[in-house]
Design a protein around this nucleic acid. Structure first.
Length: 297
DNA sequence: AACAAAGGCAACCGCAGATCG
DNA sequence: TCGATCTGCGGTTGCCTTTGT
């Protein structure tokens, strides 16, 4: 069964040869791709247009960054995935030079296992129940390439934030935020141990589209040491063992997507804002929504 | 050294939305 | 308005390499 676009002609499948790559690159660099369905014919390739498009986008584009993912990229993937779920194309937009396919493969082969080994459900980013953790411990060993990326002391550092936001009329009405979803710190993954991961992230030279309008959240998000964070009247508590069963589930991106639209009034904002990087959340949701609605600025 | 299992990754498949005539 | 085609996306498959026995 072939693609509709190429069902009439005999097409080659499987790995691309250097000659085919060469033909495709030459054609696109001189003529552009135009209509992908006409590319194979014009380029003299016995491939279907879809295959040509995929090959170009994933491997031949000159702006691709090859090589293994950096710790920063890995953290970005985890953060954005927590918000958007398996929207690989959206996630890849946060990683210049990376493709959705590359991100997806990296997630499935590395990050997923790493999260599992750290007791996290890769779908929900929630802590697994003790029973689930026991089963995953049996099933999977640490897959990390660096020993330092293993959880230390066999425990997690989980922030629990209680925000005492004062209302604008200066009275002392305190607004107790709903219990936030768990956020697990990965201090061992920070490239610079003297700065928080978010600082590394936002302060990196990488051309990240993130613009954090609430950097206080961003800065505390990956704080590794036990601390009381009192900026903006929020209190951070840490505890050694996660209270797995009492923690509420992270709202599922999939659940928020009706007709594949991001609900801008989503429950992430309402309930768990305290433990999310709001800057990342804002920019990611906004860019996703802008994409969904076709807004360009 | 040979074989099996696991991991990693490139490519394919099918669906859904967009576009065009 | 509608059907055909194109494009983009996420899920899945299958091949090749690496690792373990």
């Amino acid at each position: 069964m072939g693609h509709r676009c190429c069902s009439k002609q005999k097409v080659k499948r499987g790995l691309w040869s250097p000659e085919e790559d060469d033909k495709l690159v030459k054609h696109i660099t001189t003529h552009g791709h135009g209509s992908w369905s006409s590319v194979p014919k014009l380029a003299g390739l016995q491939r279907c247009g879809k295959s040509c498009r995929l090959r170009w986008i994933n491997y031949l584009r000159p702006d691709l960054k090859r090589g293994s993912f950096t710790a920063e990229e890995e953290q970005i993937i985890i953060d954005v995935h927590r918000i958007l779920g398996n929207r690989w194309a959206q996630i890849a937009k946060h990683l210049p030079g990376r493709t959705d396919n590359e991100v997806k493969n990296f997630w499935n082969s590395c990050i997923k296992k790493k999260l599992l080994s750290q007791g996290l459900d890769p779908k929900t980013h929630n802590l697994l129940s003790s029973r689930q953790r026991a089963s995953t411990k049996l099933a999977c060993k640490y897959s990390s390439s660096s020993p330092s990326s293993q959880p230390q002391h066999g425990s997690f550092t989980v922030f629990n934030i209680t925000s005492h936001a004062k209302d604008t009329n200066n009275n002392n009405n305190t607004m107790m935020m709903n219990p936030p979803p768990p956020v697990v710190a990965f201090p061992h993954q920070s490239p610079n141990p003297n700065t928080t991961y978010a600082q590394n992230l936002y302060g990196s030279s990488m051309d990240t589209p993130f613009v954090s309008s609430s950097s206080c959240f961003g800065n505390m998000l990956y704080e590794s040491d036990p601390c009381i964070w009192d900026d903006a009247n929020a209190v951070v508590e840490t505890f050694e063992e996660p209270r797995v069963d009492s923690l509420p589930p992270v709202p599922q991106p999939q659940q928020q997507e009706n007709d594949d639209k991001i609900d801008m009034d989503c429950s992430l904002m309402e309930g768990g804002a305290g433990s999310f990087d709001l800057g990342l959340l804002e920019s990611t949701l906004l860019s996703a929504a802008m994409d969904d609605f076709g807004w360009n600025f």
